[in-house]
Amino acid sequence: MCLAVPGRIRDVKPVQEWMYSGTVDFGGVLREVNLSCVPEAVPGDYVLVHVGVAISILPEEEAIQCLAELEHAGVEFEYEEGLE
């Protein structure tokens, strides 16, 4: 019911009074996305997109977020930044 993927906003343009849309980059793939549900989003922000509509803005520091979540769950792990 909800395949949603993260993408980076490249530009934002008003469509109608309170409707916005913009081009979102999903990693070498561009698509127009409706941004009316995240009116505070600006170019450079990451948003979560489902069926062409952004439903949430993603926090800036995703790596720290993930590790904080795991610590909260009592998960022990070693994770150096440059594992890629």
Partner: peptide, 10 residues
């Protein structure tokens, strides 16, 4: 490739 993976995820 990164963009093929991105298109497939989307």
């Amino acid at each position: 490739s990164a963009s093929v993976r991105a298109a497939c995820e989307l």
